[in-house]
Simulated assay, not measured.
Amino acid sequence: MGARIRELPAQLPRSFDKPDEPWYRYVTIDLIFYVLNYSLFHPWTSWVLVLCLRAQLTPYENTEMRIAIGWAILMSAKSIFRIFSDKIAFGAPREVELSDEVIVITGGVEGLGGLLAETYGMRNANIAVLDNKKVTEDEAEEKGVLYYDCDVGDAEQVEAVAKEIAEDLGAPTILINNAGIVRPQSILDSTAEDVEKTFRTNTFSHFNTLRTFLPYMLQERRGTIVTVSSVLGHLGAANLSSYTASKAALLALHHSVKAEIAQLPDGKDIKTILVSPGQMSTKMFEGVQTPSNFFAPLAAPVDVAKEIIKLVEKGEGGEIAVPLYAKWIQILGILPAGVQTLVRRWAGVDTAIAKSGLANKTVVSEKSAF
């Protein structure tokens, strides 16, 4: 008898629980851009078109041949520029071997963090989750994840748990700061306690974990730090003042930490990744409608997790923004004030929470991001 195959729990994505929708609901600008990136905008495909024209004995002086060659050169130049730009911004990738890494995820019981933890658990990685939510021993064993009961907003608890992780698994080398809560309420209805709790979980926790786990990475001379912020950190939104402010702080924190690590002698192989997703299909903002399914579709947690895992395992630093509009949201800030106002009205960013009925309700907590 061979070794018994380990059975792993599986749960279908939430979209499978919903009734089928018309085909055009699945057509989004993200899908179109994805297809174009691997066809018309891809340098290899562009040069294949040139070769096809030559196979038909098309003369070089013909207009269609000149256009094809010009386009191929432009796409090749774009790709080369991007490679050099990323190299300058994020440096050379570090070598990553999962068996030699210790991954720490805050808020890793549910949502995006839970998906990351379970994915790495299935791959037998050394994974530690810091969360207040309880997980049974049987469930933890099935997922192959070690769960530590920890309030990441409490510096002393984080320091104590870090010592346990170092003894149980080894020195932490990958930190995914994902924990987050939201209190959808107007600033007039908020209390000092509400705001403090939001910042403790969403912002102060990052300071706690960075101060605690970064020394381990410097000691190992390698590491990756993932900061999960939100597209709302760039925008702000009515009835989400404490949440958006706490996420905006993470944008500045990420850039500051990246600059400090670059100045440390042992920080050469410590990479930083900033994640700024748009609205994800999790419980956190369930019921909030996007202004356009075509231009601003919901981001599936699996798509965000896939991008994070890809950068982490390639040993690269970078910035992740999903869906497509999240990549260009900063452009809104340089537009004339009147245009910004019109765009916000069209998008409904300041009325979405009120219309969804979430405003001033009980705390909605989910280890995820919007």
Rank of each mutant, 00 (worst) to 15 (best):
T119F: 13
A68H: 06
E142I: 04
A128C: 07
E21W: 03
L40W: 07
E61C: 11
T63E: 10
L40V: 08
L98A: 15
V109P: 05
V48N: 02
L130P: 00
K87S: 15
N37T: 08
N37F: 05
E118N: 03
D30C: 01
W44A: 13
G111K: 02
I83D: 14
L49T: 14
T63M: 08
D138H: 10
L53V: 09
G113K: 01
E139H: 12
K87N: 11
W44K: 07
K78C: 15
T119R: 14
K78E: 15
L49A: 13
M65P: 06
V35E: 01
A128V: 05
A117Y: 04
C52M: 14
L49S: 10
K78M: 13
T58I: 07
T136Q: 06
C52I: 15
V27F: 01
A72Q: 10
P43G: 03
F81A: 14
L36D: 00
Y24E: 03
H42L: 08
V145W: 08
I80R: 09
E97P: 11
L51V: 14
A128G: 06
T136L: 04
P93Q: 02
W44M: 15
V129F: 13
M75G: 06
S46K: 00
F90Y: 05
R25Y: 08
I88G: 12
A77P: 14
I127S: 00
Y38P: 04
I127A: 02
H42W: 05
D100I: 06
L116E: 03
M65R: 12
A72R: 01
S79D: 15
I127R: 04
D149M: 12
I127T: 04
S39W: 03
S85P: 04
S79E: 15
R123Q: 13
E61P: 06
A68R: 07
T119Y: 13
T106D: 00
N126F: 04
T28F: 05
V145H: 07
A55Q: 10
L130C: 02
A117E: 04
E95Q: 14
E21R: 01
D149P: 12
A140F: 00
A140G: 03
A117C: 01
N132K: 14
V145Y: 14
A77V: 08
R25A: 11
I127C: 00
E97S: 13
F81Y: 15
I83S: 15
E61T: 09
D100L: 11
T28A: 02
V104M: 10
L115P: 00
G111L: 01
V27P: 03
I73Y: 08
G70D: 05
L57Y: 12
E118D: 02
L116A: 00
Y34P: 00
M122Y: 11
I29C: 04
V96I: 14
E110K: 14
W44R: 08
E64T: 11
R82F: 15
C52V: 12
I73K: 09
L40H: 06
L116P: 01
K133H: 08
